[in-house]
C-alpha cells in the first residue's frame, strides 16, 4: 500500500519517545536549570498530541485513554493540595515544606518535587483533554447525519 506520509510516520515514531523523555528531563532537572512542572507538562502533552496528529485520534486514545485524562486532572490537583495537608498534619503551615524532613532544605526539596509532580500531572492531562475535546468534535453537523 502506498502511504504518502511514511516519512512523517517513521520520523515521528522515532521522535515521540525522545520528546516524552525530554519532558521528564525538564521535570526533574527543573531545580537546576530552566524547566519545571508547567513546561514538562506541556511537552509531555505535546508528545501525545503529535502522536494523535500523525497516527489519528483513535490510536492516540488507545495509547492514552480518555479515562486516564479524567482521573489525572483530579489527581494532579489533589497531589498539590495533599502536600499542603501533609505539611499541615506534620505541624507546619499549609505548604510549608520544611517540616517534611529533618533538615529544612531537604524538606523543601521533597515538597518542591511533590508539588511539581502535581503540576505536571494536571497540566499534561488538561492539555490532552482539551485536545481530545477539540479533535473528536465532528466538524459539521449536517442534517443528513440525524
Amino acid at each position: 500500500m502506498h502511504d504518502p506520509h511514511v516519512l512523517l510516520r517513521v520520523i515521528s515514531k522515532f521522535l515521540i519517545p525522545i520528546i516524552a523523555l525530554f519532558a521528564l528531563y525538564v521535570q526533574f532537572h527543573g531545580d537546576y536549570g530552566p524547566g519545571g512542572g508547567f513546561q514538562a507538562g506541556v511537552i509531555l502533552a505535546a508528545s501525545v498530541i503529535l502522536y494523535a496528529l500523525i497516527f489519528g485520534l483513535d490510536a492516540a486514545k488507545k495509547a492514552f485513554p480518555p479515562s486516564w485524562v479524567r482521573i489525572g486532572m483530579t489527581i494532579g490537583v489533589l497531589l498539590y493540595g495533599g502536600t499542603g495537608v501533609v505539611t499541615w498534619l506534620l505541624g507546619g503551615e499549609y505548604l510549608n515544606y520544611s517540616v517534611l524532613a529533618h533538615e529544612a532544605s531537604h524538606g523543601q526539596h521533597y515538597g518542591i518535587l511533590a508539588v511539581e509532580l502535581g503540576v505536571l500531572v494536571t497540566v499534561t492531562t488538561v492539555m490532552i483533554a482539551i485536545f481530545y475535546a477539540f479533535g473528536s468534535r465532528q466538524p459539521e453537523t449536517d442534517e443528513r447525519d440525524w
Binding site: 515544606y97 532544605s105 518542591i112
Partner: peptide, 25 residues
C-alpha cells in the same frame, strides 16, 4: 532556605506555593 540553584522554581513552588496552587486549580 531552599538550596536549589533555580530561583524561579524555588519562588514558584515554595515561596509562592499558594499562587501556583491557585493557578493549578
Amino acid at each position: 532556605d531552599i538550596d536549589i540553584p533555580n530561583v524561579v522554581t524555588a519562588v514558584l513552588a515554595s515561596y509562592r506555593g499558594y499562587d501556583t496552587f491557585g493557578e493549578t486549580v
